[in-house]
Design a protein around this nucleic acid. Sequence first.
DNA 1: CTTTTAACTTGCATTTTGCAAGTAACGTTG
DNA 2: CAACGTTACTTGCAAAATGCAAGTTAAAAG
Lengths: 144, 144
Amino acid sequence: MTKMKADPERRSGCPLNASVEMLGDRWSLLVIRDMMLRGYQTFHEFLHSDEKISTNILADRLRRLEEYGIISSQTDSFDGRKVIYSLTPKGIDLAPVLTEMVLWAARHEETGNQPLVREMRRDKDQLIASVRQRWAQKHKSLVG
Amino acid sequence: MTKMKADPERRSGCPLNASVEMLGDRWSLLVIRDMMLRGYQTFHEFLHSDEKISTNILADRLRRLEEYGIISSQTDSFDGRKVIYSLTPKGIDLAPVLTEMVLWAARHEETGNQPLVREMRRDKDQLIASVRQRWAQKHKSLVG
DNA sequence: CTTTTAACTTGCATTTTGCAAGTAACGTTG
DNA sequence: CAACGTTACTTGCAAAATGCAAGTTAAAAG
């Protein structure tokens, strides 16, 4: 587990503040959700997600998430136009954060995607494990 | 557990999106941290937290968090100038979200407050339980 | 009273967001 | 191989959010 140097411009040393400075905006966690739970990998796919992010913001968020080491990118070897984005281990490690945020909203708001919520409620750790597994599967060619 | 009506202007029905629309900014979760982990209750206390929020933004965030039902406010009965802010059950229920965000940052960034991090790592559920307990203690006069 | 404290509000400059319209590189089709 | 479609962006500009400094109001303390 490689730690990065703390950004010298952080407002404070509090770990929650670090999280909030990296992820505290309207879009970053939605992009991560798309990658983690829906398997999205391209600009085009993120763009057509329900929340309708605009192109300049999406480009900016992908850039920032990559800078933070949460995602990585590489051009598709079969189609030179496509850029394939994937979660790094640091990004995959956000699964528990996403899970708790989903469960919290589902408990206190009227929300959709009840099947996912039920699955998360039934066995949180199991779901997180399977997200990790799918990710490892996808990356085994690069690792082994 | 009372659910609110979904905000008709939500960008999507996804529960993660709901969370992000309520909490996805640079400050909201820090205010909640101050209340949950540090026992802060007043405007003045939030204002002098490490991250140095400015007065207009703080006022706005407190207003929004109250609208969302995450916190509540009442004027202090001993000092009419003071407004006492406290977490609602919905707010206290964010404990697992905060915990996972703290642990994630602590795993991947250089951050401070290691005692808190160690305590969270040692027993996540225990810490969340004790946050709930302290909160219940503080509110027992209102409940019982 | 006068001063201090607490919780804001207001004004204004800066930054971020969001929409619409490009553009450049690659791939596909005829 | 030329025209066209796709993919991943960038650019321009208006609108909204943020941040700083300086008020303002009401209550408490001296």
